[in-house]
Design a protein around this nucleic acid. Sequence first.
DNA 1: ATTAATCTTGACAAAATTACTCGGACATAT
DNA 2: ATATGTCCGAGTAATTTTGTCAAGATTAAT
Lengths: 151, 151
Amino acid sequence: MKLTTKGRYGLKAMFDLALNSNGEPIKLNAIGERQGISVNYLEQLISPLRKAGLVKSVRGAQGGYILAKPASEITVRDILVTLEGPIVPVDCVSEDDDENLCTHSDCCVSRIIYEKIRDSINEVVASITLQDMIDDHKQINATNIQVNCKN
Amino acid sequence: MKLTTKGRYGLKAMFDLALNSNGEPIKLNAIGERQGISVNYLEQLISPLRKAGLVKSVRGAQGGYILAKPASEITVRDILVTLEGPIVPVDCVSEDDDENLCTHSDCCVSRIIYEKIRDSINEVVASITLQDMIDDHKQINATNIQVNCKN
DNA sequence: ATTAATCTTGACAAAATTACTCGGACATAT
DNA sequence: ATATGTCCGAGTAATTTTGTCAAGATTAAT
């Protein structure tokens, strides 16, 4: 029941992008330095985020990335689903994923539990936007010193 | 964010144990056959469950396992935590696990999210007992045919 | 036009985790 | 004594994770 670094780093990167956005595209290099993530790895993470329509890329010199939508319209769920796939405790309750759908869906007690877990997680992450994170960040930074954290 | 087979099989096994309990100890062999889990692997799962005080073993011929407590007093959380460790999306928000506690706990925006995820999952699984599963099972079986499911 | 900066893609690989199997020791009912 | 079970630790194949790396495409700046 753990997130992988894809989800964690991706969330950090998207938060960094939202926090530091000023109209200019932001280089992966800059994100990587601020967040302590290698550019090589970031490249792997940003690619699906772009294909999912969460960021836009500007190629060439002085290029970089910008959010494709306002921070208030990008949820943590959008990011995690893009990078980790459906947020489910077991494959058989993933709604989008026909391949793994359980054929015994109507007669499995465990399934009821897994659906509840699935729904509760998805509710939480769908309710939090990048803007919420920025707001939290500002409040936290009013009283505390900023430290780079690996999570 | 997936459960491993330890958690899933362990939950199935405990449910089987609760459902088929009649005072007599139940052999791993029987659980394995009914649930489609190898006895070898079941042994690995039952051992921590016994050490956690969720089941009691009866050694020797005609031995087996019985629930250590009424089914209504064993939660899904008890089982999952025993077999998978703390239910957390990232190590830095595991309450029992000092080793991985984050030193920047007061200045991390992601942490707020991870705590919410942690709490929502734990609330769900702590609220469901083996007795609830048995009740669900009886209701399901009233209308459907029982089929062995891998989950 | 050339250069340098930056994104884009796919291949590769080390490390960690998962999902088991296996062999033998131990305990007890018969 | 023997059959039937649990108990325990080691080992291992497969998979997933967590990256690195190289070569190419695109564009701004000169």
